[in-house]
C-alpha cells in the first residue's frame, strides 16, 4: 500500500511535468497543425538555463529559497519563450505555405540544432543541480510521508495549467488563439492577426516547457542534453492521449501518462519503463486516434 501510494504521488509529479510539456505540443499543433519536434529540446534548454542562472545569480541565497526559485522560474520561462519565438521566425515561418513534410523536417532539424548546440556549450556529460535548494522534507498525507518536492511540482503545474486555461478561455488573445486554431483563414478575415497568435503560441508553449525543464532539474538533480528527446516524445504521447489540439486534454493526458508509467515501472517491469509510453502511444493511435477528450483529427480532403 505504501509503495503504491509512493508510486502514485511520484507519477502525479512526473505527470504534471509531462502535462506542462504536452501543452506546448498541443497548442502549436492546434494552431499550425505541426508537430514541433524542437519542443523537447526547448525543455532541455530550460533546465540548462535554470542551472546556469542558479549558479551564477545565486538567487536562492539572496532572496530566500522559495522566492529565489520563483524568480528563477520566471527568468527561465521568459528566456525560453524568447528562444521559442526566434525559432518560429527562423525555422517555421518561411515554411508556412510549404508541404507538411518540409515543416516536419525543419522541426527535426531545429531539434538537432538545439540539442547539439546545448551539447557544444555545456558539454555532453550529465550536469548536476546543487542539492537541497528547496528543503528536502516530507509532509504526511493520509499518514504516509510525501516529499515536499512532489507536492510543489504537482501544485505548480496545476496552477500554471489553470492559469493557461483561463487565459485561453477568458481573454481576447485567448479567443483569438482559439479562433485561429479552428480556421486560420476565417480568423484572418475576422481581423485577427494570425502571425501574432502564432507568436504568442510559440512564446507560451516553450515558456511552459522551460518551466518543466527547471522542475526536472530540481526534482531529479541531473540533466543531460539528450533528455529532451525522451521527455518530448512522452509529452507528445500525453498530448495525443488526451486529444491533440485540446488544452484540458493535454493536462489529463500528461497526468494519466505519468501515473501509468510510474505504476507500470513498479508493478510490470522497471526495465521496460521507457517503452510503456510508446505502447500507450501506439495503442491509442490504433484504438482511438482522437484521444480521450478528442476533437476531430480526420484529415480534410
Amino acid at each position: 500500500m505504501e509503495q503504491f501510494f509512493q508510486q502514485l504521488t511520484n507519477g502525479l509529479a512526473v505527470g504534471g511535468i509531462y502535462a506542462l510539456i504536452a501543452l506546448g505540443y498541443t497548442m502549436v499543433y492546434g494552431v499550425m497543425k505541426l508537430i514541433n519536434f524542437a519542443h523537447g529540446d526547448l525543455f532541455t534548454l530550460g533546465s540548462y538555463l535554470g542551472l546556469s542562472l542558479l549558479t551564477s545569480l545565486a538567487l536562492t541565497e539572496n532572496i530566500g529559497a522559495f522566492m529565489g526559485v520563483i524568480a528563477l522560474a520566471i527568468l527561465v520561462m521568459a528566456l525560453v519563450g524568447i528562444v521559442g519565438v526566434v525559432l518560429e521566425r527562423a525555422a517555421y515561418r518561411p515554411l508556412r505555405e510549404s508541404p507538411r513534410l518540409s515543416a516536419v523536417v525543419s522541426a527535426l532539424g531545429a531539434s538537432i540544432v538545439l540539442s547539439n548546440g546545448i551539447m557544444l556549450i555545456y558539454g555532453a556529460k550529465y550536469l548536476f543541480y546543487p542539492q537541497n535548494i528547496l528543503p528536502s522534507m516530507t509532509i504526511p498525507i493520509f499518514g504516509l510521508p510525501v516529499p515536499l518536492m512532489r507536492i510543489i511540482i504537482l501544485v505548480t503545474s496545476l496552477v500554471m495549467m489553470a492559469a493557461l486555461y483561463l487565459f485561453i478561455q477568458k481573454t481576447t488573445i485567448g479567443t483569438a488563439i482559439r479562433a485561429a486554431a479552428i480556421d486560420q483563414g476565417a480568423a484572418r478575415l475576422m481581423g485577427i492577426n494570425v502571425d501574432m497568435v502564432i507568436m504568442m503560441v510559440f512564446m507560451i508553449g516553450p515558456a511552459l516547457g522551460g518551466a518543466a525543464g527547471l522542475m526536472v532539474g530540481l526534482y531529479y538533480g541531473n540533466i543531460n542534453f539528450t533528455m529532451g528527446w525522451v521527455y518530448g516524445l512522452k509529452a507528445f504521447t500525453a498530448a495525443i492521449l488526451g486529444g491533440i489540439g485540446n488544452i484540458p486534454g493535454a493536462m489529463v493526458g500528461g497526468i494519466l501518462l505519468g501515473v501509468i508509467e510510474s505504476l507500470g515501472a513498479a508493478y510490470i517491469s522497471l526495465a521496460w519503463k521507457d517503452a510503456i509510453a510508446f505502447f500507450v502511444l501506439i495503442l491509442i493511435l490504433i484504438v482511438r486516434p482522437t484521444g480521450l477528450l478528442g476533437e476531430r483529427v480526420a484529415e480534410k480532403v
Binding site: A90, A91, P94, L95, S98, S102, A103, V105, S106, L108, G109, A110, S111, I112, V113, L114, N116
Partner: peptide
C-alpha cells in the same frame, strides 16, 4: 546537419 535540414527545407 540540423541547420542544413532547415536551410534545405526553406
Amino acid at each position: 546537419f540540423g541547420a542544413a535540414m532547415i536551410v534545405m527545407m526553406i
